[in-house]
Amino acid sequence: MGEWFYLEHEMLPALLRGLWVSLGLIAPAAAAGLVLGIGVASARVYGARPLRSLASIYTVLFRGVPLVVQLFIWYFGLPHVGVYLSPYIASVVAFSLCSAAYHSEYIRGALLSIKRGQMQAALALGFTRFQGIRSIILPQALRRALPGCGNEIIYLIKYSSLAYMVTCIELTGEAKILASHSFKYTEVFLVVGVLYLAMVSIAGRVLGAVEARLSLPGFERHRL
């Protein structure tokens, strides 16, 4: 079997199939992680004491326990209490929750950097605290958190490869199967590496564009 034939007829179709699964894992996990991260960060900074503690415990747990262990809990652990998740769902849940814990730290930092006067002005106009957070604080904080959150999304793209550990066969999973059949580890994983690099580059571009789009007069990048 020729190298090109193998590449074209076996490797590429399998890897493309895996790539789609990977994208199917990354997109919802990135979105859900970010939304949940905003909630957790807001709770930690502005929540009442019980909510704040709950959010802190969340961050400690999901940032502290290795992601593989979390994945195993969702996939192998939950059936013990009668909850069965498909490999795909278990992976998306694990990635979202873990990602949210990291996002929440970037966003918390950004929330703390917003001057007190912004909330005071909102309250003085009759905003409720919740309205103030939503309409005044978060729009400013998220702009500041964006570089950090983008970093987390890029990291998510790569740790999505852990999904194959719970038999959700995505890009890395397909690659492992291909390689173990053909013993072409170097070739297969080189291509896999290029595909991850491409995903990360595109995500980086998109995030950069979002950042530029949302930039405000007075908060541009300064080059001194």
Binding site: K115, G117, Q120, A122, A124, Q140, F219
Partner: peptide
């Protein structure tokens, strides 16, 4: 309420 340092919403 008018504040000494304005507190306009920066965004």
């Amino acid at each position: 309420m008018i504040f000494q340092d304005f507190n306009l919403f920066d965004h």
